[in-house]
Structure formats: structure tokens, C-alpha cells
């Protein structure tokens, strides 16, 4: 294969870059999930002010390009005296972005829980938090897992934008090796392949999880 020599040379850099990509993806997914859950609960159960804040947040973050959000955090915030290093800036932007989508996934999951389930929980004397945790959440999770899995995969791909703010992840490494060797085609193809492998594994994991959950009932 033409790319073999290149691959051996680039390998150590690619390993670090892959680690960074996964780190960005996982961290942003976890933080984004926390944001998404809070926003979904605010939107579903909050008062009018909380609801309005949640709706606006989701609308803005889904209605603007992730690249702009990232540039705002990295280049815009310093004007307010908030200087962030590239990795935290990327994580903040990716988390806020994923949080908006995840909020919608969680909200749909919670809405899919039959009203009778809440009523049965309440009729046992459960307070809201317990009814949510014991009864609604496990059922909402089943509904939310496919879209949340897809969001995770999308997020892994979105991490490539972090290269724009100089985070050394897969895309940035491909670009720098590509420019120093003029072998852009091979480098981007290699990196594309790596993304594809990660995401195929994730899809597989998601399928297994879905099947396990389906069996539990």
C-alpha cells in the first residue's frame, strides 16, 4: 500500500491524536449529557422562566454552526477577559453544542413515558424526584438510547473542528503531516478511516446495548 511508509512515520503522532479525539468526545459527551439532562428537566418541569431559558438555549445552539460557537468561545471570550486554552475551549463549545441536542433527546424520552406510569408512582406516595429516578428515567433511557448513541457518534466527528483552534487531534495531525509531506490525500484518507472505525465500533456497542435493554423487559 502507498500509505504504509507514511503510516509508520505518522503512527506515534496519530496515536496521541486519537487519544485526544477520544478524550474530547467522551468528556464533551459526559458534560453535554449533564447539561442536556438539566435543560430537559427545566423545559419539562420548570416554571415559565426556566422553560424560556431552556428553549432559548436549545434554539440558539441548534440554530448556529458549531464552528461559530467554537470561535466565539476561543476568540470571542478573551474580549471579556476570559482566556481559555484550546482544549478547554473546544470542550466547552462541544459540550454546549451536544447538550442542546441531548436535551431534546432526553426530553423526547421522558415525554414517551406513559402518563399512567407517573400516576402509578405518585399513587404509591413517591415524591417527584423518586418517581423520576425509579420509574420514569429507566423507561425514558430505553427510548433515548438510539438518538443519544447517534449524538455521540456525531460528536466524535464534530471534534475534528477543534483543529481550527489548534487542538492537536486527528484532523490537525493529518493536516500538519499532510502539509509537511505534501501527501494530503493519504493522510486525510487514513484519518477518515480511523473516524470510521471508531464510529463503527460505537454503533456496534449501541446495538448490543439496545438489544440487552430490549431483553430486560
Amino acid at each position: 500500500m502507498i500509505a504504509v511508509d507514511l503510516l509508520t512515520r505518522a503512527f506515534p503522532l496519530l496515536v496521541d491524536a486519537l487519544a485526544m479525539t477520544i478524550f474530547l468526545g467522551v468528556t464533551s459527551f459526559l458534560i453535554g449529557s449533564a447539561i442536556g439532562m438539566v435543560v430537559a428537566l427545566a423545559r419539562l418541569f420548570g416554571g415559565p422562566v426556566l422553560r424560556a431559558v431552556a428553549v432559548t438555549y436549545v434554539s440558539i445552539l441548534r440554530g448556529t454552526p458549531l464552528l461559530i460557537q467554537l470561535l466565539l468561545v476561543y476568540f470571542g471570550l478573551p474580549q471579556f477577559g476570559i482566556l481559555l486554552r484550546p482544549v478547554p475551549a473546544a470542550i466547552i463549545a462541544l459540550s454546549l453544542h451536544a447538550g442542546a441536542y441531548l436535551a431534546e433527546n432526553f426530553r423526547a424520552g421522558i415525554l414517551a413515558v406513559d402518563k399512567g406510569q407517573w400516576e402509578a408512582a405518585y399513587s404509591l406516595g413517591m415524591p417527584f424526584a423518586k418517581a423520576f429516578r425509579r420509574v420514569a428515567f429507566p423507561q425514558a433511557a430505553r427510548v433515548a438510547i438510539p438518538p443519544v448513541g447517534s449524538r455521540f457518534i456525531a460528536l466524535i466527528k464534530d471534534t475534528s473542528l477543534a483543529s481550527v483552534v489548534t487542538v492537536v487531534e486527528l484532523t490537525a495531525v493529518a493536516e500538519s503531516i499532510g502539509s509537511s509531506t505534501f501527501r494530503y490525500l493519504e493522510m486525510f484518507a487514513i484519518v477518515a478511516m480511523i473516524y470510521w472505525v471508531i464510529n463503527s465500533l460505537l454503533s456496534l456497542g449501541q446495538e448490543v446495548l439496545e438489544r440487552r435493554l430490549a431483553r430486560a423487559y
Binding site: D114, A120, Y122, L124, G125, Q139, R142
Partner: peptide, 23 residues
């Protein structure tokens, strides 16, 4: 709210559509 929960523990309910917890 506490009083309502107290009442709910004393007056249990059986629903038309069962509403068993499927999980």
C-alpha cells in the same frame, strides 16, 4: 405536598390500565 403523599400511602389506587412498571 407531604400531606398529599401521606394520603396517597393510605389510599392506594388500582388503575383501569394497570400501569405496572414494565421495567
Amino acid at each position: 405536598t407531604r400531606q398529599i403523599r401521606e394520603i396517597r400511602t393510605r389510599a392506594a389506587m388500582v388503575f383501569q390500565h394497570f400501569n405496572l412498571f414494565p421495567h
